[in-house]
Write a protein that binds this DNA or RNA. Structure first.
Lengths: 217, 217
DNA sequence: GATAAAATGAGGACAAGTCCCTATTTTCTT
DNA sequence: AAGAAAATAGGGACTTGTCCTCATTTTATC
């Protein structure tokens, strides 16, 4: 943090209109100073490397590099900016993944305007904050044993991820096989393996998962 | 219009933050007066019936009643508010559908801030306006013969729509059959019929269509 | 170089979806 | 009341995806 009273903040979201609205609300908070706006993860990463940013308010679903990838990248580069995520998805699995990766805040876009002030206070003190409607899930995350790890896409191998992304685009096995120059049989096998890792079974369970998780892959 | 110089405007979008940003930009335009904000189509409809609204700026993808349904409803009720749509989807099929239903403006969220002023000018004069990047498509729509109608979901029967929505949720034939208390065979038949109406063929062509069009169904 | 993980591919049984066909009943429209 | 449109459902052939099994090759990692 620059000093006791001022926090340098960047906003990362692919909608300029939403950024404008967000900026307006953020700047009403004493000590909050927005020093940059970025429309995708890549642009934000540059800024995060170059400057000393206290807080990054980032959307999960973005082009080029999504919010999760950006957070992962910052972990690798030991950039110690606090990440506050803005999302319209109130899913437990997403919240847990983000917390596992070290996210400090999780705000639903619906209620962000009301929660923002207390979120900033809490994060400034080094604590985690999530939207009030999801408060119970934060406690659940804190107390859960680290052993009972969630089944998630983070356990997939690189090729399995590629297959999953292709599935999310509703491609058939044949199309995927042609895309990656492998046999249909191999694609089938990957599907089965992925389903096992994610604990899925049934005809369209994997397809459903892929489509629903598409923004976070 | 209230008088020559002032337009009554409502904003309809499910993201409060985006509405704030939009409001800020709209209110910088001389003669533009935002008299209401609504988070879904149903709430907006009430307002449109009760008051005399000149312009409605509406998102396509919303809960309860989406933008297209709202426009259709207003057509039925002969409400003569000018609709300007805000969307992140730059798809020809969506643009054409909206224009067919009488939409006056079509702005991409990306560039809405820049286009807004000229959009208002144009719509005020009774002309149609679309984001500059899609200008060519507007000309295409104007000159196209009315006979060569687009294949679209608007040609589907009520039951076919229900099936399509269920497909968009990645439900299997079995699940759909159970939902609507009909046989799997009937669901199969509906799928084939829908595919024909939309000019689709192949294993997952319909499923792909359903998922991609989900926000506009 | 040895071991482990990842990626590749196949055989075979089964489940699910596609796409023709036909047919009856229900609902809407005039 | 008559005709059209929509919804229902089945037969049967075919394609695609699921999910076991097993095996080989490639790529990291130590």
């Amino acid at each position: 943090m620059s000093d006791n009273s001022t926090s340098n903040i960047i906003l990362v979201d692919d909608h300029p209109l939403l950024r404008s609205g967000l900026r307006m609300i953020v700047e009403r908070i004493p000590g909050a100073k927005v020093i940059g706006e970025y429309g995708d993860g890549e642009a934000a990463l540059e800024s995060l490397r170059a400057h000393s940013i206290d807080i990054a308010m980032v959307d999960v679903d973005m082009p080029k590099m999504n919010g999760i990838e950006l957070l992962k990248k910052c972990n690798e580069l030991t950039i110690r900016t606090s990440f506050i995520f803005l999302t319209m998805y109130n899913e437990k699995s997403l919240l847990f993944r983000l917390l596992d990766f070290g996210a400090k805040g999780f705000l639903l876009k619906e209620t962000a305007a009301e929660d923002l002030h207390s979120c900033f206070e809490t994060v400034k003190e080094g604590e985690r904050y999530v939207s009030s409607s999801l408060r119970a899930l934060l406690e659940q995350w804190k107390t859960r044993s680290k052993k009972q790890k969630q089944l998630s896409v983070d356990d997939l191998t690189p090729m399995e991820r590629k297959i999953l992304s292709a599935l999310a685009q509703l491609k058939t096995n044949k199309e995927i096989a042609e895309t990656f120059f492998i046999s249909e049989k191999t694609v089938e096998n990957h599907r089965v393996n992925i389903s096992h890792k994610l604990g899925l079974q049934g005809t369209h369970a994997l397809l459903k998962f892929a489509v629903e998780q598409k923004p976070f892959l």
